[in-house]
Amino acid sequence: MKHFKLFVILVLATMFSFAQEQPATDTSSDADKLAKQLANPIASLISVPFQANIDFGIGPANGTRFVLNIQPVIPLSISEDWNVIARVILPVITQTDVFGESGNQFGLGDALVSSFFSPKAPTSDGLIWGIGPVFLVPTSSDKLLGTEKFGIGPTAVTLKQIGNLTVGALVNHIWSVAGASDRADINNSFFQPFIAQNFPGGYSISLNTELTQSWDYNTTTGTINLIGAKVVKLGKQPAQIAIGPRVPYGNGNTAEWGFRALFILMFPKG
């Protein structure tokens, strides 16, 4: 927990520093363009987000969980008209008493690997979309940090950008097909509608909900996330810093409250 507090202090201090010290060129079209690309999960932009989530008041023992999601996004051109966007989410987790008085665990969680086949150009109506497979890979280092199951299913994303406004949704469904026989099977749907508004100077604010429905066990868990963000420059390296609250909901092993902080490295073409 001490490391997490230090992380949050550093993020807040850096955001304040950039807000006070960035020159007028920070309002350039480059920062605005990058902020708009980041609002699109399947943009032709290499990025490496580090997403930190902290949740409090989980379950009957009032547990806490800190998850650092390392989630590189790599677009690959496969033809004149099509891209494949590869996305990996690898969680590093530290938690205490999340499943009753279960003690402390630290290590890797299960990885989520997605590939979206997406046209390079929007449709005539301005719709941007992608579809492909998603894989749940049992990379967890502790049985309380993962499912010990290998899963597969479809995933899709669709969005529309109207000026500086982005509206869309990402969905997937995963069925377990292999893994430990003594662990629960997976038959889960994930739904993430999102809306983002960009402002001059690389600023943005976004709202999304991340909902997971377990059909076999009739449990619903999710969070509503409100995030304020700013594109900055670390020397010549473009990045985005963001922070905001998380509001948990559902009938599963949910938290009482939490918040999220992000640091995203970007590698634009050219």
Rank of each mutant, 00 (worst) to 15 (best):
G228V: 12
L127Q: 13
F191E: 00
G153S: 07
D30Q: 03
R183K: 12
S47A: 02
I186N: 01
E148Y: 10
D97I: 12
G244H: 13
G179P: 11
N104S: 12
T155F: 10
V84T: 00
S44M: 01
M266D: 09
N251E: 04
W215F: 11
F106I: 09
N172P: 03
Q192Y: 06
P268E: 06
Y203G: 07
L10E: 12
I162M: 04
N188S: 12
A121E: 15
A19R: 11
I131F: 15
D97F: 11
I128Q: 13
T96C: 10
F191V: 08
S114T: 15
R65L: 08
L265E: 13
G107F: 05
L262H: 07
L145S: 04
M1Y: 02
F190R: 15
G202K: 00
A169Y: 03
M1F: 04
T223C: 12
I224K: 06
D97M: 10
W215Y: 11
I54A: 08
A52I: 00
R246L: 14
I54S: 09
N69R: 06
E148H: 10
K160N: 08
V48P: 02
Q20F: 07
A61V: 02
L136D: 13
T155A: 14
A86F: 09
S124W: 00
L68F: 05
P49I: 06
W215E: 05
G228L: 10
V231P: 11
I131Q: 13
I128S: 14
A13H: 03
N218M: 08
I241S: 04
A184Q: 10
D32S: 06
G252K: 04
A196K: 12
K149E: 13
A169P: 02
T221G: 15
A31L: 00
A178W: 05
K36W: 01
A239M: 15
S181H: 15
V8T: 01
S181C: 12
G201H: 00
V134S: 07
K36N: 09
